[in-house]
Design a protein around this nucleic acid. Structure first.
Lengths: 234, 234
DNA sequence: ACATGTATACTTGTATACAAGTCAACTGAA
DNA sequence: TTCAGTTGACTTGTATACAAGTATACATGT
């Protein structure tokens, strides 16, 4: 994700390791609760323990792992509490921002016309991803849709925070996609939301978005039961 | 700050170094733009470079320093853009949350009565801090007021994010306190906001809070001119 | 059989050694 | 004087060595 570390384009082995491990965690390639070890990862990546340790510290700050002293690092279990908290933060920021974008939108400006093309493009790609049943791609594109709209207000900090929140929401989302099929509903909602934005209708945008962000809530009990070993509180 | 690292109460030298340096940065004891070096800090703290490096990596994630490869680390200049961004995030989260708290408040419950005492206590201490012209204490208490109210919704993630934002807003606040004297206004606003919350009046809470969060905006041009060497964009 | 102590192979935490980039000051030739 | 080249003292980045905590298997004594 191009968001992080745009300070000086410094790409140490530690940062690369961080990004690699983080991707594997939030895409469930490494399972919640799984133990990982500095030695193991460093052998796997062909570097020494030092960069891996740096990566672990960053993951710890993201709350994506827990470090058990002298025992190893455990990939964080999915916490319903944490998911709810991240969802709340996301909703606050995203609703406020989308409303602003809705009130700003002006198709006469080139900037917005470009954006419109890009967003329509994302939506099209999403439909294709659904057709191909490529859920990894689908989730990534879903993120891009939201990010594109957020980016209108030119607030990098919002994107960074949302990125942090998304890390925790993503794993839940993957599980839910494995179970229930509302990708098409999600895409339709994207279209409606984008229409409300283009129509300069902040209130409608707010209502649609709040609904959209909660679409997955009702599936959760099933998920939690089925994958209870991935969850902290179960 | 008890917020961080409640995972396992692990307190490595790296974490201690991080907290120590962070405090010095956000309280302007280390000046924006100042260079700091792993060797220097490690000698100062009496530890090796390793824990200091870990601290630097955490500070980098907070965007409180920039690491210039092979040259050293520079304490981040205060960025007006970053301050505005952090302010926006803060406002979104704090306004939404205070409104919820205002709608929840119920003086009949013991929980709220305890909180009321604690908050009144904070306000009293603030008045004392102003009387003693103890600005460091004043800023800390201001933070506590907001945090106490946020804590009602029991969302640790919100507190963590606010803490991140506060790090960037704090340095600005210190400069402003050196220049303009609206501490008393700030305290009065706290009282009004708290009254609106107790009166279960979310709308009034929102208006008062939004105003409160912007009280410092008009002083900024002076500050930026006077301390221009601390700022990124000037 | 069963508790108890111990060796051993793991882990993370910390210090240190070494590699390589950066910059400034100095040297020496034109 | 001026400018190119070089040395050397800094810096961070990475690897490695060592210290110390943890858990498990196993031997030993009862």
């Amino acid at each position: 994700m191009a968001l992080q570390e745009l300070s000086t384009n410094r790409k140490t082995l530690g940062i690369k390791a961080y990004q690699a491990i983080r991707d594997e965690i939030i895409s469930l390639q490494i399972k919640p609760g799984e133990m990982i070890y500095e030695n193991g990862i460093s052998a796997q990546l062909g570097v020494s323990r030092t960069p891996v340790r740096e990566a672990f510290n960053m993951l710890l700050k993201d709350e994506l792992i827990e470090i058990l002293p002298q025992k190893g690092a455990q990939v964080a279990l999915i916490s319903q509490q944490k998911v709810a908290e991240a969802q709340y933060v996301r909703e606050c920021l995203e609703v406020s921002t989308f409303k602003i974008v809705a009130s700003m939108w002006n198709s006469k400006e080139a900037k917005f016309r470009e954006l419109e093309d890009e967003i329509n493009n994302i939506i099209n790609q999403q439909e294709q991803a659904v057709a191909e049943q490529n859920y990894v791609s689908f989730v990534a594109l879903d993120g891009q849709f939201h990010e594109k709209i957020l980016s209108v207000i030119e607030n990098r900090t919002v994107l960074v925070v949302m990125n942090q929140m998304r890390a925790h929401l993503n794993r839940m989302r993957y599980l839910e996609l494995l179970e229930a099929r509302h990708e098409q509903i999600g895409i339709d909602q994207h279209k409606e939301i984008f229409a409300a934005i283009r129509a300069n209708d902040p209130s409608k945008t707010e209502i649609l978005l709040a609904w959209h962000l909660r679409i997955l809530d009702d599936v959760r009990p099933d998920i939690i039961k089925k994958y209870s070993h991935f969850f902290k509180e179960s």
